[in-house]
Design a protein around this nucleic acid. Structure first.
Length: 387
DNA sequence: CTCACGCCTTGTGGTCGAGGGATAT
DNA sequence: CATATCCCTCGACCACAAGGCGTGA
């Protein structure tokens, strides 16, 4: 592994506050709620009940700060939503910047513990002692995070460049009529740390606060090993099984962690697709949300192609091995035929549809609800009223 | 254009049971 | 590995008030 001297570009970070507490900086985005949340409020909101815990959350886009990120650009060290990824990595001619290494990142559900969150946002290589020691040494009076040498953090922030994708992967043969295939996003690498983008300092700070509130969190024991078998660290209260997913969990195959003698019901279930099994938690457990929220649906909404679509967006998702090898996510024909106006229109329709999508039960007529609740029933069925 | 009227459609929730996955034998 | 059992999820069912819509005055 070669460490690159490249440091994240210090573009202005979005300064949006959490929609819930309006105090801390928002670092996550909940699609179902269309809300930007900090880690603390995310836990509070999504641990309320089982329904809320199913909400799919993603990191906030580093660029616009208003949409769920689905792409990690290693070159820019940023997490981007599909639109910003498109804007940042394409030119007006729809050619893709070939030099940027990008890959999909995951959303998650449930009510993950701090340990899980560390993993989910890409801090899985961070020693947990460093998490706390940096809290003591690495924050100033204003609780602003600063790099700390010698405790693992500085090393952590020396970004490593996985070898999973190279420029060659993005070079398109000259005989290809258009360059869209170049915009495909490589599969999830085994080394998936440092996907937290440009808000990593804020994330780390919030996670540190969260860890202090987590009664069972013991950094002395919370090492990476325990992440893999983190049953013992998972507080029985105030949390529900967390998982990362594509938002298409219906067809996912649930897998459990090594039992460690813990009853399965207490184990956190994760969802896996066709991931190559590795020893690293993220590689094995995390799924990407590329299919649902990345550039793919945005850019070839109605053009068919490699990603199957269904009316409900759940049952017929593609089984293409997008996580094991690069998949030509763009059709050979069709996309280049879309002019920018059509594309904008398609994107708008997609975003609007996504925005209005509802998973929770919605009562249109409260009066009917009241009426139904007061009606006489026989075995649950409405019964005729005898006059 | 507004209003009244009549007819058709819609939506509401608790329970049951089919179906399928997980677990035990 | 095959079968049995358990457990969970989810759709169907019911009656009828309210909403929607067309028509005529």
């Amino acid at each position: 592994m070669s460490k690159t001297p490249h440091k994240p570009q210090q573009t202005p970070l979005p300064t949006g506050h959490c929609d819930y507490c309006n105090d801390r900086r928002a670092v996550l985005y909940c699609r179902a709620d269309s809300a930007k949340l900090c880690f603390s409020c995310d836990r509070e909101v999504h641990s309320t009940n089982q329904l809320f815990s199913k909400h799919s959350r993603s990191q906030l886009c580093d660029s616009c700060g208003a949409s769920p990120a689905s792409i990690f650009c290693e070159t820019e060290q940023s997490v981007l939503c599909s639109n910003c990824d498109w804007d940042n990595h394409t030119q007006s001619t729809l050619y893709v910047y070939p030099a940027h290494n990008r890959r999909p990142i995951e959303s998650f559900t449930g009510c993950p513990s701090v340990i899980e969150l560390l993993t989910i946002v890409g801090f899985d290589d961070l020693d947990n002692k460093a998490l706390f020691s940096s809290d003591e040494n690495g924050t100033d009076k204003n609780n602003n995070y600063s790099y700390v040498d010698g405790d693992g953090l500085s090393e952590f922030f020396d970004w490593e460049t996985p070898d999973f994708v190279s420029i060659d992967n993005l070079i398109v043969p000259s005989d290809v009529g258009h360059n869209y295939q170049a915009s495909e996003v490589p599969p999830l690498p085994k080394n998936r740390n440092a996907t937290c983008g440009q808000q990593k300092e804020e994330m780390l700070r919030q996670l540190r606060e969260l860890a202090k509130l987590e009664p069972n969190f013991n950094y002395e024991n919370a090492d990476i090993e325990s992440i893999v078998g983190f049953h013992s660290l998972v507080p029985e209260l105030n949390r529900q099984p967390g998982n990362t997913h594509t938002g298409l969990e219906h067809d996912a195959d649930p897998i459990s962690f090594p039992d460690h003698g813990v009853k399965k019901t207490s184990a956190v279930q994760w969802f896996t697709d066709s991931f190559e099994a590795t020893n690293q938690l993220p590689s094995k457990l995390l799924r990407n949300n590329f299919e649902e929220s990345s550039v793919v649906p945005d850019q070839h909404l109605d053009t068919g192609g490699c990603v199957s679509h269904s009316s409900d967006g759940h049952k017929e998702r593609s089984h293409l091995p997008i996580t094991t090898e690069p998949v030509p996510v763009f059709p050979k024909v069709g996309l280049h035929e879309l002019n920018s106006q059509e594309r904008d229109s398609a994107i708008s329709r997609y975003k609007e549809k996504r925005k209005t999508r509802r998973y929770d039960k919605h009562i249109r007529y409260e009066s009917r609800k009241v009426r139904a609740e007061s009606r006489t029933r026989i075995k649950g069925r409405f019964a005729k009223i005898e006059h």
